[in-house]
Amino acid sequence: MPELGLKVNGRSVELRASHEASLLHVLRNDLGLNGPKFGCGLGQCGACTVWVDGTAARACVIPAHGVAGREITTLEGLGTREHWHPVQQGFEDAQAAQCGYCLNGMVMQAAALLAREPNPSEARIRSELSGNLCRCGTHVEILDAVQRAALRIAEGAGT
Rank of each mutant, 00 (worst) to 15 (best):
P2R: 12
C136T: 08
G69Y: 05
E76W: 07
V107K: 07
S22V: 05
D53M: 01
V50S: 03
G41Q: 05
G69F: 02
L103N: 09
E128P: 01
C136L: 08
H65L: 10
H139G: 07
K37G: 11
V13Q: 11
T49C: 10
T74A: 07
S18K: 15
N9H: 09
E3F: 00
G10D: 09
G10F: 13
F91V: 08
R116C: 02
R70S: 08
R124I: 03
W51A: 02
E3H: 02
G39M: 11
V52M: 03
E76L: 10
E117G: 00
M106F: 15
T138W: 08
C48D: 13
R70P: 01
H83D: 15
P120L: 03
E82D: 14
G46T: 04
A110F: 04
E3L: 07
E3R: 06
V67R: 07
D93Y: 03
G69N: 04
L151F: 00
E117I: 00
Q109L: 02
P86H: 05
Q147K: 15
L15T: 12
G39F: 11
A64R: 01
L23A: 10
E128M: 01
G77K: 10
I62S: 06
C45I: 07
L42H: 11
N34D: 03
C136E: 10
L75Q: 09
V146K: 03
A157E: 14
L15P: 09
I125L: 02
E14K: 15
T80Y: 14
W84C: 05
Q88T: 13
T138E: 14
A96M: 09
D30E: 15
P2A: 12
Q98L: 10
P63T: 05
W84I: 06
A64W: 11
S22T: 15
C134P: 13
V87C: 09
A115Q: 15
I142D: 11
G54P: 12
H25G: 00
V26M: 13
K7A: 06
T74N: 12
A21K: 15
W51Q: 07
G32R: 13
N9Q: 11
T80V: 11
D30W: 06
L15N: 04
E128W: 04
C40L: 07
A150P: 01
V52I: 15
G35P: 11
T159W: 06
F38N: 09
E122G: 00
H85A: 01
